[in-house]
Amino acid sequence: MTTSPLANLSATRELLDEFGLATKHRLGQNFLIDNHVIEHICQLAELDGTERVLEVGPGIGTLTLALVQEAARVVSIEMDATLEPVLDAHAADHDNFRYIMGDALKVSPALIAGAAGGEPEVFVANLPYNVAATIILQYFETMPSLRRAVVMVQKEVADRIAACPGTKAFGAYTVKLSLYGTVTGRFEVPPRCFMPAPHVDSAVVRIDRCRPAEGGDGSSGASLDPRAVGRVVDAAFAQRRKTIRNSMGANGFDKRALDAAFESADIAPTARAETLSVEDFIRLARALESLAGREVDA
């Protein structure tokens, strides 16, 4: 079992005292102090020692020190400058660890690849909860080399990631992420596993990238730009109490084109967005794209 020397209360306190640090609530920092959680994360990540791993929000390096035991190279992105001395010390002790100081949403994939010695293949992180959902989707969109992600997020975000059609948690984000990956594992992490204990419940989810020709449910998405599907999804959920026809019609789509596309895709225009599957949205986007192509040819 992979362990982290920092995944306990006394070691965490000692390191914080050594570097003169205090928890930064403004950045949502809650330090993981339960090694069982670290072990479970590493089990889900299934690292075999050959992978380049990307981490966001390493904090004092609790998860990082476990990952460097399992991966060929670990690159972490941290935005809190006060933590740089800690990460620098870890880098001095571990030849396969590099870090980048900056905003994880602004650091370029090229810079990450340069630090990792190649494009990252696995994303493992205890993410800052306020930007977790955005980071996960952006990384799958912009780093096609990522084969899977194992990420700790707020429980409500995990619910959105894994939601099924027809449920309250199912929304535009669920569909758009499903175009890139599917959830293959999950476990809950209670507040007592952190110092200080947060006021929210957490969960770790594993997301495996779909094959390029698939949507998140295995449906064919070949030659269809996920961004085109994303525009359909955003318009459909923009006014989720309305029918999909009215919501999309009020958000940039011509209703005559919509009616033809609904018929072609075998989707009821009176349906609401949360009742449609990922496959439905892919078919609808393809139908709209096909209709637009015919208009251009005409």
Score class of each variant (00 low, 15 high):
Ala149Trp: 01
Arg294Pro: 00
Arg256Ala: 11
Pro165His: 12
Leu83Asn: 06
Lys155Leu: 05
Ala11Gly: 06
Ala172Thr: 06
Leu15His: 09
Ile60Leu: 14
Gly293Leu: 15
Val53Gln: 02
Gln138Trp: 01
Gln239Gly: 01
Ala149Ser: 14
Lys168Ile: 07
Ser202Thr: 13
Leu105Gly: 11
Thr243Cys: 10
Arg73Thr: 06
Ser223Thr: 13
Pro198Ser: 08
Gly61Glu: 01
Thr275Gly: 10
Thr275Lys: 14
Ala81Asn: 11
Leu67Thr: 00
Phe237Lys: 11
Arg209Glu: 08
Ala298Met: 10
Gln43Val: 15
Phe262Glu: 04
Ala104Asp: 09
Gly28His: 10
Val37Ser: 08
Pro196Val: 02
Pro128Val: 09
Lys155Gly: 00
Ala110Phe: 00
Asp17Thr: 15
Asp95Ile: 10
Arg52Asp: 03
Arg256His: 14
Ala236Ile: 07
Ser264Tyr: 01
Ala133His: 08
Ala104Cys: 13
Ala91Asn: 11
Glu214His: 14
Val233Ser: 06
Arg227Pro: 00
Val175Gly: 05
Val183Met: 10
Arg272Cys: 13
Val296Leu: 15
Thr243Asp: 10
Val74Ala: 06
Leu111Met: 08
Arg231Tyr: 12
Ala7Trp: 04
Leu177Ser: 04
Gly118Pro: 07
Ser223Trp: 15
Gly28Arg: 06
Arg286Thr: 13
Asn96Tyr: 12
Ala163Met: 12
Ala292Tyr: 13
Ala45Lys: 04
Val183Tyr: 05
Pro198Cys: 09
Asp103Asn: 15
Arg13Ser: 04
Lys242Asp: 05
Pro190Gly: 06
Ala287Asn: 07
Ile100Trp: 01
Val183Asn: 13
Val37Trp: 02
Gly49Phe: 04
Val75Asn: 01
Arg227Gly: 14
Arg286Gln: 09
Ala89Thr: 14
Gly57Arg: 04
Tyr180Asn: 04
Ser223Gln: 13
Phe170Asp: 02
Phe187Gly: 08
Asp80Lys: 11
Asp88Tyr: 15
Leu105Ala: 13
Val175Asn: 03
Asp93Gln: 15
Leu137Arg: 13
Thr167Val: 14
